[in-house]
C-alpha cells in the first residue's frame, strides 16, 4: 500500500488525488459500522451514566440532576440488594454445572462414532429454542400437582413438591432449566479444545499404563485449561444477565427469591418508569460483571504462570 501511495503521488495532481483516496479508503470501509456503533452503543452507554445521576420519570417526563441519590437509594433498597444476591446464587448454581457437566459430556462424546455425533446434536438442540418455548415446556414439567416432577414425587410417596412455588427450590429449578437449555455451548467449546490435544501424548501415557483418571487429571485437563477458563468467563458473563427464564417461570417470586438484577432493571425502568433509578442499577450490574470476569481471569492465570 505505502509503495503504491508513493508512486501515485509522483504522478501529478490526478494521481495525487487517487493517493489521498487510497490513504483514506480504509476509513470509508469502516465508517458505516463506526457510525452505528457510536450511535447505538457508545452514545447510549454515556447517556446511561448521565441518566443514573438524574431523577427521571418516563411517564411524567420530568428529569433533574440529583447526584448520587439513585445510588444511595439502591444501596438501601432491600429488593435490589436481594436481586444481587439472587443473581450471585444463580451464577454459583449454574456456572460450575456448565463447566463440569459440559466437560464430562464433551469427554464422553469426543469419539468419531455415529452415536456420539447424534448425542452432540441432541445436547446442543435446546439451544436453538427461544426462551419462551423453553419456559412453556418446563412450566408443564414443573406444574404443581399434575406436572412431571410432581407426578413423580407423588408416586414416590413424597407428595407434590410444587417446586416453582417453593422459596428454597425455585431458583435451583430455574438453574436446571438453564442448564438443559444451554449446556450445548460449553460442550461444543470443550469438544473443540479436546480435538486440539495432540494424540501422541495419550499414546505415551497409555504405554505407561497410566489409569484413565490419571490421564484425565495430568494430561487432558492441563491441555485444555485455557478453554476451561474461557468457558467459565463466558458463562459468568451470560448468567449474570439472566432474565427471560425467571421473568417467565416465576416472575421473580416466590417471596422475591428469584428476582434477578436484569429483572429488577426491567421492572424499575419499564413497569415503574423510573429511568434514572434503572440506569443506576444497570451501571452496578455492568461493574459487577466486569469485576467478576476480570477476577476470574486473574485467579486462573496465576497458577498457569507459576
Amino acid at each position: 500500500m505505502t509503495t503504491l501511495v508513493g508512486v501515485d503521488a509522483a504522478r501529478g495532481r490526478r494521481a495525487a488525488r487517487a493517493g489521498w483516496w487510497s490513504r483514506w479508503a480504509g476509513l470509508a470501509f469502516v465508517a458505516p459500522f463506526l457510525v452505528l456503533y457510536l450511535w447505538l452503543m457508545i452514545y447510549p452507554l454515556v447517556s446511561g451514566v448521565i441518566m443514573s445521576f438524574q431523577y427521571k420519570d418516563l411517564l411524567s417526563g420530568t428529569s433533574e440532576f440529583v447526584g448520587f441519590w439513585n445510588y444511595e437509594d439502591l444501596s438501601i433498597d432491600p429488593i435490589f440488594i436481594g436481586s444481587i444476591f439472587n443473581t450471585l446464587r444463580f451464577v454459583i448454581l449454574t456456572v460450575p454445572a456448565f463447566v463440569v457437566l459440559g466437560l464430562l459430556i464433551a469427554l464422553a462424546l469426543n469419539r468419531p462414532t455415529r452415536g456420539a455425533a447424534i448425542m452432540r446434536t441432541l445436547f446442543f438442540g435446546p439451544h436453538v429454542l427461544s426462551v419462551t418455548v423453553v419456559t412453556l415446556i418446563w412450566k408443564t414439567v414443573y406444574l404443581p400437582n399434575v406436572g412431571m416432577i410432581d407426578a413423580g414425587s407423588t408416586a414416590l410417596g413424597l407428595g407434590p413438591l410444587s417446586i416453582l412455588l417453593n422459596p428454597d427450590w425455585a431458583l435451583a429449578a430455574v438453574a436446571l432449566v438453564t442448564v438443559w437449555w444451554s449446556i450445548g455451548l460449553p460442550m461444543m467449546l470443550f469438544l473443540a479444545a479436546l480435538q486440539q490435544v495432540p494424540q501422541d501424548i495419550y499414546e505415551a501415557a497409555r504405554l505407561d499404563s497410566a489409569s484413565p483418571l490419571r490421564i484425565l487429571w495430568t494430561i487432558t485437563i492441563p491441555s485444555i485449561s485455557k478453554m476451561i477458563v474461557l468457558v467459565a468467563v463466558i458463562e459468568v458473563v451470560l448468567q449474570f444477565q439472566v432474565f427471560g427464564q425467571v421473568n417467565l417461570l416465576t416472575g421473580g417470586g416466590p417471596n422475591n427469591t428469584t428476582r434477578s438484577m436484569v429483572m429488577f432493571i426491567y421492572q424499575a425502568g419499564f413497569q415503574q418508569w423510573q429511568a434514572g433509578y434503572a440506569a443506576a442499577a444497570s451501571q452496578i450490574l455492568f461493574a459487577i460483571m466486569l469485576v467478576a470476569a476480570g477476577l476470574q481471569f486473574w485467579v486462573s492465570r496465576k497458577p498457569a504462570e507459576s
Binding site: V30, F33, L34, Y37, L40, M41, I42, Y43, P44, L45, S47, G48, M51, L58, V237, F240, Q241, F243, V262, I265, G269, F270, A275, A278, A279, S282, Q283, L285, F286, M289, L290, A293
Partner: peptide, 23 residues
C-alpha cells in the same frame, strides 16, 4: 479505532437498554 471497537464487546445490552429505549 479497532481497540475502541473491541471495548464494545464488553458492554452488555442491559447496560444500555434504558437510554436506548428513550432514544
Amino acid at each position: 479505532l479497532f481497540v475502541f471497537v473491541l471495548i464494545g464487546l464488553a458492554i452488555p445490552r442491559q447496560a444500555i437498554i434504558i437510554p436506548l429505549h428513550a432514544m
